[in-house]
Structures are given as C-alpha cells and as structure tokens.
C-alpha cells in the first residue's frame, strides 16, 4: 500500500510518520504532484498558520493533484490544518484559498475560552451518524487538539465543544478529516489512523 504524506514544508511529518510506522505501515513524503497520482491513501497533515499552508500548496503545485485524488475517491485524511484546508478559506488568512471541497469558511474559536485550544478534550460523537474512523473508539474519548480556528459542525460525525461546537471528525465517502491530532492522541489516535488505513485496503 502506498501511503503518501503531503509535505508542504511546515507540517509535523515526523510524528505522523512515527505513528504510521508503529502501525507497521510505511509512508512516503511527497512535496511534488507526481506521487499523488498513484497513491492508495493520502494524508495531509498541517500545523501552524493557514496562509503559508495555502501558499505552499500552490507553490508546490499540489492543489489540483490533491483535488484530483479526492475526486477519484482515493482515501484522504486531513489532519488539523489539513482538515481546515477542505473549506473555501479561513478567517485566519482572508486572502488565502482553501481547497473548497466543503462550502464556507473556517472561523476563529470565540474569545472567552483559553486559546489556542490546546490539550486533551472530549469528542462528542453525534448519534445516528456512523463513523468508520471512530470504530472502536468511545463516543466521548479524549483526543489531543492544538488550534485556534475550526470548521462548522455541518456534516460532522463527531464534534468538540469548546467555546462553540465545531467539527472534530468529518467523513464523506473516502474523504476524512480530523481537527485533533491522531498522531498525538495516544491509543485512541492509533485506532483512528488504523481505521483510516483500513479504508484504503
């Protein structure tokens, strides 16, 4: 299985690579469009600011190949900023363009709670929504978050409540995204990553 980790220059790739290796799955980094063409699964990790992230996707020519992979229904997992990239844009960087797979924009978490939202918080799996990523995960499991912006809860299979209610886990067909960091979420995170890889088998 060819698992491609998108390297846009500022992601925390070693952590994700380590998590995949502990699951016995090798991955390769890709900072050019070519490897995306024959990937069995694509992971788009992301940390930091939306603006350099979006700019790097364009500079490296990754935007269209990523959209093509999503259109071909190659299993795709966006992590943190990689999930946020699915929307049209973000309040964090009004001029930067997201991938625009989902309508609307990423918004800042409200003032009144400590920001960044950083640490272990509970998922709230929505009743009536089945989730492939969360199979075997407690519906209110603790996972690790580190972010100040988030996407609306529309279409989420699990949300998190912190100042507002936002998407913690998104799923639609082969398209997956998590606002938390599965590579930093201990045993629960490993299960989520394993479940994602299962969808690519």
């Amino acid at each position: 299985m060819s698992v491609v980790l998108v390297d846009y220059g500022a992601g925390n790739l070693p952590s994700v690579e380590g998590a995949l290796r502990r699951l016995g799955v090798p991955s390769r980094r890709c900072s050019t469009p070519e490897p995306l063409a024959d990937a069995d699964a694509v992971i788009l990790p992301g940390v930091g600011h939306f603006s350099p992230f979006a700019a790097a996707l364009d500079r490296r020519g990754l935007r269209q190949p990523l959209l093509d992979a999503i259109a071909r229904e190659v299993p795709f997992l966006g992590i943190c900023l990689g999930l946020q990239a699915l929307w049209e844009g973000s309040e964090e960087a009004p001029m930067a363009r997201g991938l625009g797979v989902l309508p609307g924009r990423i918004a800042a978490l409200p003032a009144g709670v400590k920001l960044p939202h950083m640490g272990w918080n509970r998922l709230r799996q929505l009743s009536g929504r089945t989730s492939r990523l969360l199979e075997g995960v407690a519906p209110d499991a603790y996972v690790y978050f580190a972010h100040s912006f988030a996407g609306s809860a529309d279409g989420a299979v699990a949300v998190c409540d912190y100042g507002t209610t936002f998407t913690a886990v998104f799923e639609r067909g082969a398209l997956f995204g998590v606002q938390f960091h599965p590579e930093k979420s201990g045993a629960v995170g490993s299960v989520v990553l394993r479940n994602f890889l299962e969808t690519a088998r």
Binding site: P14, S15, E17, G18, A19, R21, R22, Y144, A146, H181, E183, K184, S185, G186, A187, G189, S190
Partner: peptide
Amino acid sequence: IRRAARELSIP
C-alpha cells in the same frame, strides 16, 4: 528529540 518523537504517541 528526534528519537523520542518517533516513539511517542503523545505531545
């Protein structure tokens, strides 16, 4: 740090 990061599933 590089070795530790590879082994850890927490921050």
